[in-house]
C-alpha cells in the first residue's frame, strides 16, 4: 500500500498537463486508498480511544470521543496481568529473534557457500520444514516438552518459534546470499579470513537488509502467535499477550474499557516497530524474493 501511495505522489509532481481521464483515475485511486486506510485505522483508533473512557460511557454511546481522558482502564489492565504478558512476549520474541535469525543465517551461509555432499537434499530438508503444519505436530510436541520439563516455560515457546521459523527465514536469507558475488568470499579468503570471519565480517553485514526484514517478520509472527502459546503455557507468569488477553477477557469480560486498553497496549509495540522500519520492510522483502 505504501509503495502505491508513494507512486501516486510521485506522479502528481509532474508539471505536464494531464488528460481529464488521468486526473479522474488518479482521484479514484486516491479515494480508494483513503477508504482502505480508514477501514483499517478506524477500528484501531476506536479501540484505543475507548480505553480512555469508562465502561458506562462506552455503553451509553459507543462511538463518542472521550469527554475527559482517564487512564484508569489502562492502569487497571496493566496491573491485572498485562505487564506480565508484555514481559513474556518481549522475552519470547526477543530471544527467538536472535536464535532464529542467527541459525538461519548460518544455515543459509552453509547452503550457499560451502560444498557439502548431498547439498540439494539438505537444502530440501531444511526448506521442506516450511510445509510442516504446527497443528499436526502438536501432540508429539506436547509430549516432548513435558518430557524435557519445558512445559509451561518461556523456553518451550522460544524453542518452538525458532524451530518453526528457521525454514522460512533460511529460505529468505539464502535467496539473498545466492545473489552476493562469490568474488567477495574469495577476496576475503585471499586476505586470510576464516569461514567464520568471512561470515561475520563480509557476508553478514552485506545481508543487513534481508536480516532486518527477517527480524520484522519474526516479530510479527512471535508477537501474535496464539496456538503454541495457548497450548504450551497456562500460568499468567508464562503466558504471552495473545493468550493472556483472552484470559483477561474471560475474567473481566464485561469491563470493556479495560479490555480495549489491554488490546491497545499489546498492539502498540508492533505498530511502532512497523513504522520505524517500514522502508526496510518493503524493500528487503522484495529484494529477498526478487530473484
Amino acid at each position: 500500500m505504501t509503495a502505491t501511495a508513494e507512486h501516486a505522489a510521485e506522479d502528481g509532481m509532474g508539471p505536464a498537463p494531464r488528460a481529464p481521464w488521468a486526473v479522474i483515475g488518479r482521484a479514484m485511486l486516491q479515494a480508494l486508498l483513503v477508504a482502505m486506510a480508514v477501514l483499517v485505522l478506524y477500528p484501531l483508533a476506536w479501540m484505543a480511544l475507548n480505553g480512555f473512557r469508562s465502561n458506562t460511557e462506552i455503553f451509553n454511546d459507543p462511538f463518542a470521543l472521550p469527554q475527559h481522558w482517564s487512564f484508569a482502564a489502562y492502569a487497571a489492565a496493566w496491573q491485572n496481568g498485562v505487564s506480565q504478558f508484555v514481559a513474556s512476549s518481549l522475552l519470547v520474541t526477543g530471544v527467538s529473534i536472535v536464535t532464529t535469525v542467527f541459525i538461519s543465517a548460518w544455515a543459509a551461509y552453509g547452503l550457499t557457500r560451502t560444498r557439502i555432499p548431498g547439498q540439494p537434499l539438505v537444502t530440501g530438508f531444511i526448506l521442506g520444514g516450511m510445509m510442516l503444519s504446527p497443528t499436526v505436530a502438536l501432540v508429539p510436541l506436547v509430549r516432548m516438552m513435558q518430557d524435557f520439563g519445558l512445559y509451561n516455560t518461556h523456553w518451550a515457546l522460544i524453542l518452538l518459534y525458532t524451530a518453526f521459523r528457521v525454514p522460512f527465514t533460511t529460505f529468505l536469507i539464502r535467496a539473498y546470499m545466492l545473489d552476493l558475488p562469490r568474488d567477495l568470499d574469495e577476496a576475503a579468503r585471499m586476505d586470510g579470513a576464516s569461514e567464520g570471519q568471512i561470515f561475520r565480517r563480509i557476508i553478514l553485514p552485506l545481508c543487513r537488509p534481508i536480516l532486518v526484514s527477517c527480524v520484522i517478520l519474526h516479530i510479527l509472527f512471535a508477537w501474535n502467535e496464539y496456538l503454541f502459546a495457548m497450548i504450551f503455557t497456562n500460568s499468567p507468569s508464562t503466558q504471552t499477550l495473545p493468550v493472556g488477553l483472552t484470559s483477561l477477557m474471560s475474567k473481566h469480560g464485561t469491563d470493556f474499557a479495560q479490555v480495549f486498553a489491554a488490546m491497545t497496549i499489546s498492539a502498540l509495540p508492533i505498530v511502532i516497530v512497523f513504522f520505524l522500519t517500514q522502508r526496510y520492510f518493503v524493500r528487503g522483502l522484495t529484494e529477498g524474493i526478487g530473484k
Binding site: 558475488p181 568474488d183 567477495l184 574469495e186 577476496a187 576475503a188 579468503r189 585471499m190 586476505d191 586470510g192 579470513a193 563480509i202 553485514p205 552485506l206
Partner: peptide, 20 residues
C-alpha cells in the same frame, strides 16, 4: 596450502571490493 599462506595476492576482474 591455504590461499592466504602462499604469499600470493590477486586482483579480481570484478575488483571484489568489500562494499560495506
Amino acid at each position: 596450502v591455504a590461499p592466504a599462506r602462499r604469499g600470493i595476492a590477486m586482483v579480481f576482474q570484478s575488483y571484489a571490493l568489500y562494499p560495506h
